[in-house]
């Protein structure tokens, strides 16, 4: 079955949001969502890395299937993605110090963001073609950013609230994530097309 790109995009952005429905990338989601001004660059950096990872994975998958080396798929994905992030970091540092300053500190965090590997694995599992993969990666990144922004907005607001001590910390973040996830359930079926 060949899904239309728009359907992939909407579904990945909203109904099957990487963070809120697929539980991917929770560590940075909980870790970097305390403030809005860090959430946005983190989201942007992650989106970019997802795109890079998706492209790498697409190429690798072709190699791996062509040569019947499926058992090396995972190991090659993770190595290539980690190297790609390193490479991106170095290139950024050299050619765009401004961007590097903005995103640099997030890049190492992203290597261990399971959303990145998740995007690569899912696109493979779903047999997406090139354009579908790219759409999926971008939508995944955008969805991650959206979730991060919403979460950061709520957390900044609760920073000013008198939250009971027991609820402070990760528990609060998880409950907020649960509420967001609940709200996102409204998107179920969106992008299913007619």
């Amino acid at each position: 079955m060949s899904e239309p790109l728009s359907s992939i995009f909407i579904s990945t952005l909203l109904a099957n949001n990487l963070v809120l429905a697929m539980f991917l990338g929770l560590c940075p989601f909980l870790g970097v969502s305390a403030r809005l001004n860090t959430a946005l660059p983190m989201g942007a950096a992650s989106t970019f890395v997802m795109l890079v990872a998706s492209l790498c994975a697409f190429g690798l998958n072709w190699l791996v299937t062509t040569f019947n080396l499926e058992f090396l798929r995972l190991i090659s994905y993770i190595v290539i993605i980690a190297s790609a992030v390193q490479l991106v970091e170095m290139v950024l540092k050299k050619y765009s110090p401004v961007l590097f300053r903005a995103l640099g500190i997030y890049l190492p965090l992203i290597t261990t963001n399971c959303a990145v590997l998740g995007v690569a694995l899912f696109q493979t599992a779903r047999d997406y073609d090139f354009l579908q993969s790219v759409t999926f990666a971008v939508a995944g990144g955008a969805g991650f950013t959206l979730a991060l922004l919403l979460m950061a907005g709520l957390r900044e607001r609760l920073n000013l609230a008198i939250v009971p001590n027991v609820v402070q910390g990760t528990a609060l973040s998880l409950m907020l994530a649960g509420l967001l996830s609940l709200a996102f359930m409204g998107f179920a079926g969106l992008g299913a097309g007619e």
């Binding site: 499926e70 899912f122 493979t124 599992a125």
Partner: peptide, 17 residues
């Protein structure tokens, strides 16, 4: 080469969460 039904991961991945 050609896993049937559960073509490697298809069912499994989609039902991931």
């Amino acid at each position: 080469a050609s896993p049937p039904l559960s073509k490697r991961g298809q069912g499994g991945f989609d039902s991931g969460s």
